[in-house]
Amino acid sequence: MSIFYRGAGVDTYWHLNNPTEIGFTARAPEVAPTTVRLIQHISRGTNNSPFISLSISYAVARDYALLSSLEIPTPSKPAYVYEIEFQNPLPSGIKVLDPVKEVAQTLPLPPTIGPAYQHDGSQEFLLGVVNPRNMGHFLMQHSQQPPLGEGTPRPPNLSLELETLVRALRDAEILVYGTIPATCVVNCFDVYVDMPLLE
């Protein structure tokens, strides 16, 4: 048995439509579930995705519910965190994917000629990827090269794959391909922001 969570902000689709009646469906279930689509889904948030995002973390799902709301959730109009439980074997027609593993298995082995997924910046570069809002200056640092090897000054390389790995780990994210049956949605937690004050 595995338990996952999904946040639904106030007045968003899964707040207005009850997944305990209709299950969870992807925005574009007809699209083929390729790794390229998976990468786009996580790093670019494309609507044209056949995947449904869940999180292993209740805290992440709660923050999605609270802060992806169109209105600030209150006790009288809360956001929701759905608890989704999968038994073994999985319901027919669905696949549960760990995006980190899915991306990792497509990465080239080191001798491959071509761009690497790794960055070529300092050890602090990853801090900028993880937290661009507070540490974005690390993304802009000059990518140092060996003496006599300098080319056009540029920031370090950030591949879509590395960005996807970081974002998936940020959200403890798990993807589902296929419709999640209503019977798998076992609980709904009402969540709200405590005493919000606008400054």
Partner: peptide, 18 residues
């Protein structure tokens, strides 16, 4: 399905306006 109110994990926020 029953709704369970999460009164345990309080999240007090203020919002800074830009």
């Amino acid at each position: 399905m029953k709704h369970i109110v999460d009164n345990v994990n309080k999240l007090e926020l203020t919002f800074k306006t830009i």
